[in-house]
């Protein structure tokens, strides 16, 4: 009888059945790695959330897939900067630090700087 009652309640635990529990915010996990990613002060979550929200659907999907594959596990902070520097969270324009800019120490040996006007630009 008790088992039946538990089964009954288990079947009714709709949030579990709909697989809506245990989901995590990728940006929050990334911003928890304060030593590995560029310093944004207390505005990391707000800033990166805005960037990912304003990215195109395709860019956001690609970023989530890359994050899930490389930073989804327990060792998220080991590859945190790699995940941050993907299009979607890295900055193509405004910056406070060169490390924010897409392509900073990125592929192809290119590097970028954050100029005096606070914009990312290729290093000379």
């Amino acid at each position: 009888m008790r088992r039946f009652a538990l089964l009954f309640l288990g079947l009714l635990a709709c949030a579990d059945v709909l697989d809506l529990t245990d989901r995590v915010d990728a940006v929050e996990r990334l911003c928890a790695c304060t030593d590995e990613v560029p310093q944004f002060g207390g505005e990391c979550v707000e800033l990166l959330s805005e960037r990912i929200a304003t990215a195109s659907d395709k860019t956001r999907q690609a970023w989530l897939e890359y994050f899930a594959e490389h930073c989804g596990g327990d060792g998220v902070c080991l590859s945190a900067y790699d995940c941050y520097s993907q299009p979607g969270t890295c900055s193509a324009l405004g910056c406070g630090d060169a490390r924010e800019c897409c392509g900073f120490e990125g592929s192809g040996g290119r590097s970028v700087i954050c100029n005096d006007e606070g914009l990312c630009q290729p290093a000379q």
């Binding site: 009714l12 949030a15 245990d22 989901r23 995590v24 929200a53 395709k58 989530l64």
Partner: peptide, 29 residues
């Protein structure tokens, strides 16, 4: 949606939809 959550890893917007869905499901339950 593929641009909201991938393998339980969500964008802020995707996570918000999941949280709302969870609340509705629990209240409804």
């Amino acid at each position: 949606e593929p641009d909201a959550c991938v393998n339980q890893i969500c964008s802020p917007k995707g996570l918000e939809a999941a949280e709302q869905g969870k609340t509705l499901a629990e209240v409804g339950q």
